[in-house]
Design a protein around this nucleic acid. Structure first.
Lengths: 137, 137
DNA sequence: CTTGAACCTCTAGTGACTAGAGGAATTACT
DNA sequence: AGTAATTCCTCTAGTCACTAGAGGTTCAAG
């Protein structure tokens, strides 16, 4: 049996966040001591680790909840899990592609003002000017 | 003189968002018609385009505000603008690197369940299992 | 048995918007 | 000039995923 603080240390999820997840229904309400403090078992630990991991992967809480209800599922429900993974992957790839474009542009902007800016630095203009960008964003 | 709707069309920033920016002090309060509707001039249009562009680049509104007050600045203030650009660039690069790691992992997970999952699909387990991941995240 | 750390609930704040209610003004058309 | 459609106004509240703080209680160690 773990206290909320131990659970936090084991998973890396902050204490208020654990309570927040409980509120949202992602974690079941744990047992309580006589003094009303939460006590967790190993199942709760695993579940929270699952949440932590999937959050790190960028899944929104709603999707994580869907996955959690799918646990131990079969047939079509497994297809759902697969779909969620695939969809997240393609979203992620889009995000990366967009960020790479922005990286190029920001690099251009940062270079616009290279050391000597005695008079007028181009950075502000570079920020303002969309015309010189590669593509749309 | 543009109405708020025209400004929205010209910049791609939604009408409520324009009002939100005004509230936050990023856009000056515009002139009003006798009937209390906003009328914008070309300067407002340019300013909003600047905001739009820098937002697309991922700068938080606070940084954009800083840049806006720097407009027409000289000397040290220009260094500030340069700093903001450089800092954003390095943050962006970190973000991209992390996302690339996650992409690898998500791809692994999505593949875990490849078509035939008559019995038990590995997707859920793959999500749960951090041990097989490349690095920390 | 006392101290101090960890715990409790609750409210409110963050960032960057978005949605909706309820009503007034403008524009286009006849 | 009248009417109907569209756009505009303010205001409140909701979103997501937390985070911070107030004010109070319980637990574990010495």
């Amino acid at each position: 049996m773990y206290s909320i603080g131990e659970l936090s240390r084991q998973t890396g999820v902050k204490v208020p966040t654990i309570r927040f997840y409980e509120d949202k229904g992602l974690l079941p309400r744990p047992a309580r001591t006589a003094g009303n403090q939460r006590r967790y078992d190993g199942a709760a630990l695993q579940r929270l680790q699952f949440i932590r991991h999937t959050r790190d992967l960028g899944l929104p809480l709603a999707d994580i909840e869907a996955l959690l209800t799918l646990e131990g599922a079969q047939g079509d429900d497994l297809n759902r899990a697969h779909e969620i993974a695939e969809q997240q992957l393609s979203e992620l790839r889009g995000r990366i592609a967009r960020l790479r474009k922005l990286e190029k542009e920001l690099a251009r902007i940062a270079k616009a003002c290279n050391g000597q800016h005695d008079h007028v630095c181009a950075v502000l203009h570079a920020f303002a000017d969309h015309g010189t960008c590669a593509g749309s964003h």
